[in-house]
Design a binder for these strands. Structure first.
Lengths: 218, 218
DNA sequence: CTAATAAGTTAGACAAAACTAACAAATAGA
DNA sequence: TCTATTTGTTAGTTTTGTCTAACTTATTAG
């Protein structure tokens, strides 16, 4: 089994390479909050285990085996978040830290039971897909709100980053997953948007917020 | 916060000193499956932190602070076992290994929520008391079945050791916690007992089994 | 195209937690 | 009491995962 540290690196690589495919050591070290030499040496270690493709001074990719291993860590994380929200009554902004720890538990039975109890969910509370037990991930159809145009009606499907500050920001504006919103206007000069939804007729969202809201049209 | 290793040592000390009060390094190393030098150096470390009383070549005891810290680890373990059995449908013989991992999670909220959901249980699925959030443990009134006499009627309250082999042994004989049994006879020469309960009129239990069944008269 | 900056690497150190080998103290048996 | 065994300790090594300092390769701006 992979150590907790190895699992964290795999998970980071999984996130960084979604929709980008090539990752470099600096990004990796930055997302994990470790020094570049630390990331560098762990990358070599994972390469030895056949989990990443790596050559000196070249960008990294996960191998097929590495992708599967990483997806299974993400699966454990997202199942846990779902469980904490649905079965233990936590708010979606509280669960990340706990899930960061629970995800390292080594017990297929434990996560299988969670999966059953949740009736085999395919998305976590933030709308991200939960990889299946074979590490296969349903492709996401979401695009950032910032890529949409005025007049479109879209459904909020997921968040691309979910710091608790961000989640609180959304909570204070009654923005929640699954909700529909209509784009009233797009400010050309700064990319901010004016949207309407449920009880809010004209809410302004900055470009950086719009980048983080992943939506689908239907 | 204590590391996982430190928590494991504290827990072992807690168990070893229950009803004995003095522990030596060899026992500690044996229960944890580590070498004596490893145990020795961890003991020094815990002493530095004010969690154990220790002098060269003398037996060890937990300090008050150490007892509390240890009890809180045991609390996390037993709450987890209870949760796994009551809320996730695991059998009592399956939960130990998972709880060994979950107990190291550092999130007061997580365990507080478990406690609430379970409606503040005072005993785990094996009948052992769950220390409260301040680390106070309710004294147990149980004594081993082997100390009882023929003719007595007793209630099975807890187990003193709970390997999965032992739990399976009990399962195959329909022996479960909370159950009443009557002692039909005690074999003087080997300490084995003939007991009756529920669907079983004459079941023979060896001395070593009777030592591990903790009972109360009422 | 060259120089400055960014990214990647190597070397060497450290802390935690384990180990083995070897020695010292305590205890128990004859 | 004296020796043998058990128990405890010290010293030194290993592994994992981190770090800093210093150096090398790549990339980017003028």
């Amino acid at each position: 089994m992979a150590s907790q540290s190895e699992e964290n690196y795999l998970k980071a690589l999984f996130h960084l390479s979604s929709g980008k495919d090539e990752v470099n050591v600096s990004e990796l070290s930055a997302t994990l909050g470790v020094s570049k030499p630390s990331a560098n040496s762990m990358v070599k270690n994972l390469q030895q285990q056949g989990l990443v493709n790596y050559q000196k001074y070249k960008p990294l990719t996960l191998t097929e085996e590495g992708k599967k291993a990483a997806a299974l860590v993400v699966r454990k994380h997202r199942l846990t978040e779902m469980y904490l929200v649905e079965k233990m009554g936590f708010g979606w902004e509280e669960v990340h830290e706990i899930a960061e720890q629970v995800e390292h538990i080594d017990s297929p039975d434990f996560f299988a039971r969670m999966d059953e109890i949740l009736e085999f969910p395919t998305e976590d509370p933030h709308g991200s897909p939960i990889p299946d037990a074979e590490g296969k991930v349903k492709r996401q159809l979401y695009k950032p709100l910032s890529k949409c145009n005025a007049g479109e009606k879209v459904r909020l499907g997921a968040l691309s980053a979910s710091s608790s500050e961000f989640l609180n920001f959304l909570n204070t504006r009654d923005i929640s997953l699954g909700m529909w919103m209509t784009i009233q206007a797009v400010e050309a000069f700064d990319g901010s948007m004016i949207v309407s939804y449920d009880g809010h007729m004209r809410e302004t969202l900055s470009k950086s917020v719009c980048d983080r809201l992943l939506v689908e049209e239907e």
